[in-house]
Write a protein that binds this DNA or RNA. Structure first.
Lengths: 159, 159
DNA sequence: CGAATCCTGTTATGTTATAACACAGTGGTG
DNA sequence: CACCACTGTGTTATAACATAACAGGATTCG
């Protein structure tokens, strides 16, 4: 058990589950989860934190691959496009999706104390965004919702 | 009258108003709206769109200043910190604040068709974000809320 | 005056991301 | 089979975004 997303869970299980979910989704939709793409997703799942593209690149290189930036960015593009990972715009970094399979507008909490990132429920937020946009006759296709602040343990440490 | 924020208004007036609002706020709070800072804010107000830091730099240089990147980033840092401008994380770009003076969590609409950016009402969205975060015992200090999609005129053009 | 603070100038560099082109594998079609 | 289209990868180079670090000028205040 590790501490993740501000809570505790069985991380090995969560990795395996996310990977098989991705495989399943790819099979259903005719997408190719190639070795590169799978490896990048695995790294994101294992680390379970927001990682920069060049940080991922370093991991690939440490594994003996002579990888270059486009390799990583292509894999990330695939993963993000198909909902297996998300980009945290505020951090220029990427995380594995915490709810693979469910269609959702991702929303994140970013702790400024410890740098951890968690995905939060976004239903009500997404609705509020669509409503505000509709008021200006704007049609929303994608949202960036990121909140910075203090996670429970950093709040406690601070008090 | 120009078309801005998906609606029409008197742009000269809006620039003058925003500048005097900034001056007033700075006077009240002991902040220095120096020539550089004021000039960057003016450019953002005049262009009334999201601009990259290097785009602003080009404008300054075209005016004969031998400016360097840090000059622009420092001015932007001041403007963003004090609420006179906002950063659009999705675009790595900056816009003048559309509601200077009012304390608010900025929220943006980004049209993928024409690239225009508008600030939208964020009260309900901000509340939804704080509530979702509170459910995870997370304390929010800052939010990034950006919706991508199609603005009214691009929707019409598409139809 | 001297010290502290804030702002600016300047050089260099770090970090993030993509363009462009070559080529290999796969699968369909005549 | 020969051909083509499509998708994915490798590689080189460069674009775009951002900051570190240090020097110096201006202002204020004791």
């Amino acid at each position: 058990m590790d501490t993740l997303g501000f809570t505790t869970h069985d991380h090995g299980h969560c990795i395996a589950q996310a990977l098989s979910s991705a495989e399943e989704t790819c099979a259903e939709q005719g997408l190719q989860l190639t070795a590169q793409r799978r490896r990048v997703l695995e790294i994101l799942l294992q680390e379970h934190r927001a990682m920069g593209a060049y940080e991922l690149l370093d991991v690939l290189r440490s594994e003996g691959q002579g990888a270059q930036p486009p390799t990583v960015y292509r894999a990330l593009d695939f993963l993000v496009t198909n909902g297996f990972a998300h980009k945290i715009e505020r951090l220029n970094a990427f995380v594995a999706c915490a709810h693979p399979g469910e269609r959702h507008a991702p929303a994140f909490l970013i702790c400024k104390g410890c740098g951890s990132v968690a995905e939060m429920p976004s239903r009500d937020i997404a609705r509020a965004v669509r409503e505000a946009a509709a008021g200006l006759a704007f049609e929303v296709s994608r949202m960036v919702i990121e909140a910075e602040g203090a996670c429970p343990s950093c709040r406690e440490a601070r008090a």
